Amino acid sequence: MPDEPVENISGGTDGGSEARFATGDPETRAEAVVDALGDIYWQKAYGGRDAFPCLVRTILSQNTSDVASQPAFDALIERYGGEGDLAATLAAADRDVVAEVIQPAGLYNQKSRVIQEAAEAILADFGDAAAFDSFVREGDPEAVRERLLELRGVGPKTADCVLLFSGGRGGVFPVDTHVHRIARRMGLAPPDADHEGVRAALEAAVPTEKCGFGHTAMIQFGREYCSARNPSCLDGPEACPLADRCDRVGVDSGAGTVVDPADSDG
C-alpha cells in the first residue's frame, strides 16, 4: 500500500508511524470500510506532535486546503519558531505581522486572532507550551477536549485533531467535511447527522486503534474518489473501490445527479 503523503491531511507534515492491527472479521460496516481504506492507503498510529504547533496547524487548516495552509504554517514557524516558547512568542507578536505571515491560509485576520488568543489562554492556564503539551498527552481525554473547545475559534474537529495527532488518543475520529460527507453517503451515519452525530456514530462503530488512520484515509478517499459534486461512482460502480460497501445516499448514477445525503429521498 502507498505511504501516507508527506504534506497531508489534518496534520501537516510528518505522518503517522507504521502500525499493525489485529486481523479478523470486522464487527461493523464502519469497521469494514476503515479496513478497506487501510488496504487502499495506509495503516498508521498517530501521536507525538507538540500540542501547541499542532493546534496552530489545525487552526490554519480551517476552511482551506493543505495547499494553502501548509505554506502559511511553515512561514509562521520560520518566523516565530526559533529558540524559546512558541506560545509565548506568538502571544507577544504584532498581530498585523502574524496576519501577514499566515495570509496564504485565508481568513488571516480571524485566524491570527484565534492563534494569539489561544496562545494567551495557554500561557495563563498552563504557564508554557510544554505544560500544555503534557496536559494534552496525559490529561483525561474528555477534560482535554473540553478545554480545547473553550478556546475561541476551536471547534470539535480542531480539538479532535489535537487529541489524535498530538495526544495520540485512540478512539478519536475527527470529522471534517470529507468525513462528514462520506460517512453519510455510505450509510455509516444517518443522512441528516451533523458533524458531532457522524463522530459519535464512527467512534461507536470503529475500534479504538483504527479511528486515526480511518480519519486520514477517508480524507484521501474523498479527495481521490468521493468528492462532493463528482464522485467516481457516477461513472459506474467499477470506478470506485468501495462501491460494494456504499449505500450511495444522495447519488443517482442513472441521472448523473448528486445531492447532500440530508436532501436525499432515501
Rank of each mutant, 00 (worst) to 15 (best):
G153K: 10
T64E: 01
E196V: 09
E7W: 15
G222Y: 06
P2L: 06
P237H: 10
A30L: 09
E100T: 15
T177W: 05
F21A: 01
V33T: 06
A22Q: 03
S10H: 15
Y41G: 01
A131I: 10
A105H: 07
S69I: 00
F135T: 03
L55I: 02
V198E: 12
P104R: 03
E238M: 13
G187D: 05
G16A: 08
T89I: 02
S65V: 08
F213V: 04
R113M: 14
G16P: 06
K157S: 09
G82K: 11
A87E: 12
R29K: 15
E150L: 07
A45E: 12
V249T: 13
Q70N: 08
G16E: 06
A93F: 07
P231N: 05
K210I: 01
D244N: 15
F132Q: 04
E78L: 04
L148E: 08
T216L: 12
S232A: 08
G12F: 01
R229D: 10
A130E: 13
A93M: 01
E196G: 12
S69N: 12
L188D: 06
T89Y: 03
H215I: 00
A91W: 05
I122C: 13
K44W: 07
G155H: 10
D235S: 15
G106N: 09
Y41S: 07
S17G: 12
S264D: 03
D14M: 11
C233G: 08
H178W: 13
C54F: 01
L202G: 15
A129F: 15
T177E: 03
P71K: 14
E142D: 00
D14F: 12
F135W: 13
D140E: 10
R169S: 09
D50I: 07
V206K: 00
G153F: 03
P26C: 07
G170V: 07
V249E: 02
C226G: 14
R181M: 15
R137Q: 14
D50P: 09
D39T: 12
T28P: 06
V144A: 03
Q70A: 10
R57Q: 01
Q62G: 03
K111N: 12
D265A: 11
H180L: 14
A255G: 04
H215S: 05
S166K: 10
R169A: 09
R229P: 00
H195Q: 14
G139W: 12
G155L: 10
A22R: 03
D14P: 12
P174W: 08
G155V: 00
A262D: 07
V162G: 00
A143N: 06
C246D: 13
F135I: 08
P5S: 11
G84E: 08
